[in-house]
Structure formats: C-alpha cells, structure tokens
C-alpha cells in the first residue's frame, strides 16, 4: 500500500491544509561558537530565510552523533544540516574537521538506508557570516523541496528500529 504524499491534516494545532506545495521540515545542528552566532547575526541583521529549519545548538559540530541524524529522519525531518566553524577557525582547533569526516561517512550510510545523500547537508559559517547562513538555509530548503518528502516506508523502517541508545553514564562530576 502506498501512502499519500501529503497526509491529510489531522492535527488540532494547525489549520487543515491539503493542497499546499511540499514544505520540508529540516533539522539543523550548529556549533556554539561560529554557526550558531551566524544564525544569531542573521537574526540581528533581520536577514530573512525560509521557516522550515529548526536548530539545535551543540558546543561543537564534532559532537554530532549518528543517532541524532537517524532520530531526526525517523521523527519527521526531511533533511538534516550540520553546520560549524570553518576548519581553519575552529574554536576547538581541529574538531570541525572531525565533524566533516563523520559527515562524509554518514552521507554514505544514509544512501544504504535509502535516503538521498543530499538530505544530509553541511556548510561552514563564521560568526560574522549571518548573510551566508541565511543564504545557505535558503539554498538547502530549495534543494530539499525539489527532492520531495521522504517516502513514509523508509521513515517507518527508521522509526521501527531506532538506533538503540544505550543508557548514558552518570553526569559529569563537577569539581568545585
């Protein structure tokens, strides 16, 4: 059975709209030092970009766990963006490069799962590049719109077998 491309509206929160063009839902990850501040600067400068992206701040783009991306796709994201410092300006010296390594690997893994690699995007933005941040968001939203939604059966596969998160260890003991 094939699922409809746009599911009929059943949520009480939002007005029922059926005949609208596909509006992707995109999850964006930023680092604390450069790309989150670029997003802040885009805001402060009132530069407009599409409202499809929802951001999560990490301390470093290298904090990115593969589970975060799989969870994102399972829970409804049509694309995931990893952003961070330019490698030469990384606040944590070279950790942005480690995020890049992980990104390349994850892109390959996604295609094995039936998700187009273009649904995982990565770009750099320094804290001074609010304009670039907004431009990249606009570009990526357009690209994902062209890709269309993720077929529901793929999402079901992801949701049915979530990457089992092992119980996490005790929180850090803080030394005063």
């Amino acid at each position: 059975m094939t699922a409809p491309m746009t599911t009929p509206q059943t949520s009480a929160m939002a007005p029922a709209v059926t005949a609208q063009p596909f509006e992707p839902l995109i999850l964006g990850f930023t680092c604390n030092w450069c790309s989150y501040r670029a997003a802040d600067l885009a805001g402060t400068s009132r530069i407009k970009y599409p409202d499809n992206v929802r951001l999560i701040r990490l301390m470093c783009s290298g904090r990115m766990e593969p589970e975060f991306i799989l969870e994102g796709f399972a829970k409804g994201a049509d694309a995931v963006i990893m952003t961070g410092c330019w490698p030469e300006d990384c606040h944590y010296r070279i950790q942005s490069v480690k995020a890049l390594r992980r990104f390349l690997f994850l892109r390959r893994m996604l295609s094995d799962l039936g998700i187009e690699p273009a649904r995982l995007q990565r770009f750099y933005a320094s804290a001074a590049e609010g304009k670039r941040f907004a431009d990249e968001m606009t570009r990526i939203v357009a690209e994902v719109k062209a890709l269309g939604p993720i077929p529901p059966e793929i999402r079901v596969t992801l949701a049915a077998e979530p990457a089992a998160p092992a119980p996490v260890a005790e929180p850090v003991e803080v030394e005063a």
Partner: peptide, 11 residues
C-alpha cells in the same frame, strides 16, 4: 506550520 504533517500519525 509548514504543511502541518503530524508525523506520528503519518508513520
């Protein structure tokens, strides 16, 4: 917002 797809229902 966007197209209001309630994901859990869809899945």
């Amino acid at each position: 917002g966007s197209d209001g797809r309630p994901v859990e229902e869809a899945v």
